[in-house]
Amino acid sequence: MCDISLEFAGGAELLFESRKKQSVSLPPQDRPWTIDLLVKWLAKNLLKGNPEMFIHADGSGVRPGILVLINEIDWELLGGKDYRIQNNDSILFVSTLHGG
């Protein structure tokens, strides 16, 4: 069981009904939850809009231009999309693709 808190910013929230913060309980599964699997799960279950704006074109990971922070740390320092999600993790998706 994985209880995590999600945050969307920088325009990414527009893909999730403009909800900037949500808590989610990830259903148990045989494989450990990684960011990659989370992204796919989000696209399937919570995303309202064009999934291409969120998921990488080749189906794995996030679209280039979306930054991910796990507990306020750059995911690139934590193994990227293969990072194994822990209970009570706080994950932020910030889009850099929207205007500014």
Binding site: G10, L92, T96, H98, G99, G100
Partner: peptide, 18 residues
Amino acid sequence: KEIVMYAHFKKLDYFSTE
């Protein structure tokens, strides 16, 4: 990337939309 991170960590106020 660094501009976005700076704004985030400094909690700067900005607006973004397509």
